[in-house]
Design a protein around this nucleic acid. Structure first.
Length: 592
RNA sequence: CGGGGUGUAGCGCAGAGGGAAGCGCGCCGCGUUUGGGACGCGGAGGUCGGCGGUUCAAGUCCGCCCACCCCGACCA
């Protein structure tokens, strides 16, 4: 490709909308352009990189037995109604009507489409196991797209679906993906860790998320440097203190005027915050028989700890959870700021499992300006449920080895998920087993977003001048800068560059040739910005010294190579760069 | 959806006491220049986010709406 023909323009200044490096650089280097919030065009450079990323995914999924197909983006509402997600999912789902006024959905994932097709195609255990996948556009009307390609509304995802006759088969395919995903990320040269994650409301037994650790990430992870425990904060657990044998003291009401916060209360009573408890009010959408109802939940945690909403939602099997409003709290007779489960009826009380082990806590008295001291679980109140519902934090003890946990931020670049039979049972996707029994297909689903992956790679590999792309992902392998100028020497250099360009192309090297009538500074800067791994400069100066100048984007050194050896040198460099990536492909231990 | 911010040329920004719409970069033409974002001369490019109002007169004042960005809520 000639720079003079490339349909992309670099920008000298980065658009003011962009804040994080990957967004700024992808825009400045002409890889992407934004059409609307969370909706982007992939320009030719990005498209080449995305194609490479997608081909890596193809190769690795094919290697574990995947068969590529293509499922529709626009789908009849019916298949979503069958699994109930048409009703369960809110405005995040894109909905439209066709000309005959039929409800249609824009696919946000393809479990429904898969379930529908296997219902018709899979009849016998002899057809299993199967692994199918496609690379397809998804639409999710995220309430807050942000950070360039990191969080968008329209995106392309490689999603695979494993189909098995039993859980053992699923385990096998799940583990195959576990390693294949590491291989995919490592071939893109992106360091990731796998963390255990929430399985959500769709049933399922196990899920892992692949996380690229970066401060710009929006998930919070807890890691143990001692034993390697790692989990998304949504589900991370930790070792709580052991039960205290302190004797329960008599319940007592004390005046605590204007003490509506834990910090203020603790100071006022001159006690540490961990001797207090607090109530967090949530409105939960739960199923009561066939009906969905909103219920006020009293979640009680120690004053110095935070409620983990994911844990709470899982414990009470809530479909949705939101903070309660003051009026809703007052409606049950509780007093915000002084709330307490003591002496209240008719609310769902969930208590963190540390509370019963902690005697003589301070709690609200349900009366403006008063708290109880020496509140004891079991004696003074009971809960509907006792469970772990607090969030793990930096410094908490690892659940496995007791060492202090570390908190980091990460971007979820992929996930793998044991779905089980939730979908197949919902749609009746069954097969006949050897014994003639009808059984539901056991499913797994596995996704990687290609745009988010590209953005993460740029986050990891850039400097003040631009991107430094791994050779496996870069749109081109080699960038030729021609420094021509007027006069005989200039013409000579231009001709030499042209010749090298042709020679490399004919040898199958992916090369972009900067043949523009621009000053050298512009060309060098654009080469750096676009991030092509190998740069070759052809100019009067280099030719005088007997050749062309090689420079790797990730290194400072320049090397003069005779023109006739250029192709050999290019191939050496490519081989070296590829070998560096190859080294990253190692078996990763599976963490339950 | 709550809080904050921004909309003026392709990009970055000025103009705000109401009185002919500007600068830098980029773009087009001619010429000079060619190893780290060159220079000269000449040019093109704007319903000042939209609608309505006040006024002799609105980019500027008032009202409503829209879009985009950031924080939070949310995230199969």
């Amino acid at each position: 490709m000639r720079m003079s023909k490339l349909f992309s323009q670099t920008l000298r200044e980065s658009p003011s909308d962009a804040e994080i490096p990957s967004h700024q650089l992808l825009l400045r280097a002409g890889y992407i352009r934004q059409l609307a919030a969370g909706i982007f065009t992939a320009m030719p450079l990005a498209q080449r990189s995305l194609t490479k990323i997608e081909n890596i995914m193809r190769e690795e999924i094919n290697a574990i037995g995947g068969q590529e197909m293509a499922m529709p983006v626009v789908q009849p509402a019916e298949i979503w109604k069958r699994t109930g997600r048409w009703f369960k999912i809110g405005p995040e789902m894109g909905r439209l009507k066709d000309r005959n006024n039929r409800d249609m959905a824009l696919a946000m994932t393809h479990e429904e489409a898969v379930s529908d097709i296997i219902k018709n195609e899979i009849h016998s255990y002899r057809q299993l196991p199967v692994l199918i996948y496609h690379i397809q556009t998804k639409w999710r009307d995220d309430p807050r797209p942000r950070a360039g390609l990191i969080r968008v509304r329209e995106f392309t995802m490689k999603d695979s679906y494993s189909l098995d006759r039993d859980w053992a088969g699923l385990d096998e395919q799940y583990r195959a993906h576990y390693q294949a995903y590491f291989d995919i990320f490592h071939r893109c040269d992106l360091p990731v860790i796998a963390v255990k994650s929430d399985v959500g409301m769709m049933g399922g037994k196990m899920a892992h998320e692949y996380m690229y650790i970066t401060p710009v990430g929006e998930d919070t992870l807890l890691l143990c440097d001692g034993c390697g425990y790692s989990a998304n904060r949504q589900i991370a657990v930790f070792q709580k203190e052991t039960a205290s044998d302190e004797a329960p003291l008599p319940l007592e009401k004390v005046a605590t005027p204007h003490m509506k916060t834990i910090a203020g209360l603790a100071e006022f009573l001159d006690i540490p915050e961990h001797q207090t408890s607090k109530v967090v009010f949530m409105m939960a959408t739960v199923l009561e028989g066939e009906e969905e109802v909103e219920k006020l939940v009293f979640a009680i945690v120690r004053g110095d700890m935070d409620l983990n909403e994911t844990k709470l939602a899982n414990v009470i099997k809530a479909k949705a959870l939101r903070p309660a409003e003051e009026a809703e709290i007052e409606a049950v007779g509780a007093v915000p700021g002084y709330a307490s489960p003591v002496g209240l009826d008719g609310v769902l009380v969930v208590v963190d499992d540390l509370i019963p082990d902690t005697p003589n806590l301070v709690a609200g008295a349900n009366q403006e300006g008063y708290h109880f001291i020496n509140v004891n679980y079991g004696r003074d109140y009971e809960a509907d449920l006792v469970a772990d519902i607090v969030a793990a934090r930096e410094g908490d003890a690892c659940p496995v080895c007791d060492q202090a946990l570390r908190e980091v931020r990460g971007i979820e670049v992929g996930n793998i998920f044991k779905l089980g039979t939730w979908y197949s049972e919902a749609v009746g996707a069954t097969f006949q087993d050897e014994d003639g029994e009808e059984r539901p297909v056991v499913m797994g689903s596995y996704g990687i977003g290609s745009g988010r992956l590209l953005a993460s790679i740029v986050e990891e590999y850039h400097d003040e001048y631009g991107m430094i792309l791994p050779i496996s992902v870069a749109p081109y392998q080699v960038y030729i800068v021609a420094i021509s100028g007027r006069g005989e020497k200039g013409a000579e250099a231009q001709a030499a560059a042209e010749q090298l360009y042709t020679e490399l192309q004919e040898a199958g090297v992916e090369v972009i040739f900067d043949d523009r009538d621009e000053s050298p500074g512009v060309k060098f800067n654009d080469a750096d910005l676009i991030g092509i791994p190998i740069r070759i400069t052809v100019g009067p100066r280099s030719l005088d010294k007997g050749g062309v100048e090689f420079k790797r984007r990730d290194q400072k050194e320049r090397e003069l190579v005779p023109l006739e050896d250029a192709l050999t040198k290019v191939n050496e460099h490519i081989a070296t760069l590829e070998a560096e990536i190859e080294e990253r492909l190692v078996p990763m231990p599976f963490k339950e």
